[in-house]
Design a protein around this nucleic acid. Structure first.
Lengths: 186, 186, 186, 186
DNA sequence: CATGAATGAGGGTTCATTCAT
DNA sequence: AATGAATGAACCCTCATTCAT
């Protein structure tokens, strides 16, 4: 039922998705929804945060498991693209479905953006310490990286042949990011 | 009244903004709204497209008026940041208020994203011809630039001291972008 | 302007006819309507009663100007059909546009029906006195005549070739009515 | 609830009857209305057509169950008067509530009138074949009969003592009709 | 646990009416 | 006299939510 809800929310957005849409997708009755969840808004916020945590953890783990900046960025992007390719609803929910819809989600969304920026900023700060990238405002670079990656992935999942284009997108994006942060390799 | 509508739509998003909110912000009666506009959806689409055109033209003109890639990118970002700083509602409406809300806007939004990507891609293609940037998929680079710039500006306008941070943001972003597209200067 | 109002009311009925329809048909401004008439309902009631009086007088005069029952009925029907043929809006307003729409018109409509019944009942009572029709409840006969005539005329004005069919309708109806009231001729 | 709707529509007409009137009469909430019916117009058309069919079938069956013209006409009128007496809302809805209100009902109303005329015309055509009535335009006679009967019944149900007057009305009307169609009995 | 009929606040929209010009 | 922009009460309808079964 929660999976059904994610799908419906991702597809229609918060407001256009009705409780009836969700229970129909889950093949249960309206009352059942309210037995498990207090209300629509709470569910959406919960789903958004669950989904955000899943994506953040997945990307974060890909990044921390690598030793060098190029590998970290490549792995992070690869993990993100994988999610976009195999679970597009997750990305849609986070980057589209939850935008500008719910006052209660403003903080949740800000937290998600902040965490995403942090994921990219950590390796940058490490690399800066080691002198592997030129001096820069790593916070702002991380924001920019985050936006760049999101946009390319959003464009990617709109393509009918997303899976075919995924590997070139990963490679293009990785190169783009390494250049953008002035990676010198040493 | 249209300014009031832009503000309300930008602040609450399409669905959460009610006609009564809009007319209250404009200090007129409900009927007055329908004297000037056929309905809520038509107004929103019109406002979105007007606003999109204004932003696109402003950024585009800043870019085409410059001779070299660094100046083009710097001027385009400066123009975009100016709008975000002095008319944050314009940016909010385009990047937040109109996301995933209205079937009738799907095309309009796609067109806007496409145009924005094109604005950044054109100078890249020119620079590639002149050998001023390394070979790359300029379309994908432009997508990434577009996302990077949007994200930084969205973060910027959320800051209370946005105007103070604007110039450093422009400078950081410009450097980021030039590195990202592998600008060699010759 | 009143003619325009009659046309619009007859065509669309009271509720569907808007003030804007009426002033557009009369080619004046909305405010002008309210300079001449206090409100929509008052105008409609006034128009209904004016129109009713016109029709009643016309039919009545045709009837009283004849000496014998056959001539009275024929003349009354002919006059009614003439109105239906040349001023269908008058008949539509009275028999269609003003039905079941306005509490304030219930009495007006009842008066109109009553008067119409009276117009037919008078010659019947005279003929009964003279022994030219068999004994009967002339009130009820007049009601029936009234309904019969209205129905045939309503059917007539719905025909595209109403004017061609008018004379046969008058003749058929007259014969029908004379038989119905058991006219013996003496 | 449908009975309540018939009552309210019959009493106020389509436009003046609000959903709140109907649900108040049925003692349910607004939402309940829309749980059972798609919208006001659909319900009204459905009710009109159901009601029309009920009345037509009732009168038709009374007519076809008799062998001779006098009995057919008497039975048809009796059946019609019974409905008017015991279910005045049915007659009001058909003859008053649904007049000139709804474009979607124009055809339905025309069909009802046509069917009603046909009910009266069939026995006339049979009687004409058997030489029991004088030669005439039976279509036009049926229209006139239809109008005559409707009008008398409408007058009847407006009377406070409708039930007392019913039998004399049936008898008067039957005699009127038989004379009107020149019934010779052989 | 599950159901779905019932609820009613609240949204978009219309249109008779007013009044400053 | 004439205008038409402005008003707001009231309409139809949706949908999140409840609760008796």
């Amino acid at each position: 039922m929660m999976q059904a809800a994610v799908r419906v929310f991702a597809e229609k957005g918060y407001h256009a998705a009705t409780i009836r849409d969700i229970v129909a997708a889950a093949d249960v009755a309206v009352g059942t929804f309210y037995f498990y969840f207090p209300d629509k808004e709470t569910l959406f916020v919960y789903l958004y945060e669950e989904t955000a945590e899943f994506l953040l953890q997945t990307v974060q783990q890909a990044v921390v498991g690598r030793a060098t900046l190029p590998k970290q960025i490549a792995a992070g992007i690869q993990a993100y693209v994988n999610i976009g390719t195999f679970e597009p609803a997750v990305v849609s929910l986070l980057l589209v479905g939850g935008v500008g819809t719910l006052p209660a989600l403003v903080k949740g969304r800000a937290d998600f953006r902040e965490s995403l920026v942090n994921i990219w900023q950590q390796p940058l700060d490490l690399a800066l310490d080691k002198g592997q990238i030129l001096p820069q405002n790593t916070r702002r670079s991380a924001e920019a990286l985050s936006g760049a990656i999101d946009e390319v992935i959003l464009n990617l999942i709109d393509q009918p042949d997303a899976k075919q284009q995924a590997s070139s997108a990963v490679s293009d994006l990785t190169q783009f990011c390494l250049r953008a942060v002035a990676y010198t390799g040493g």
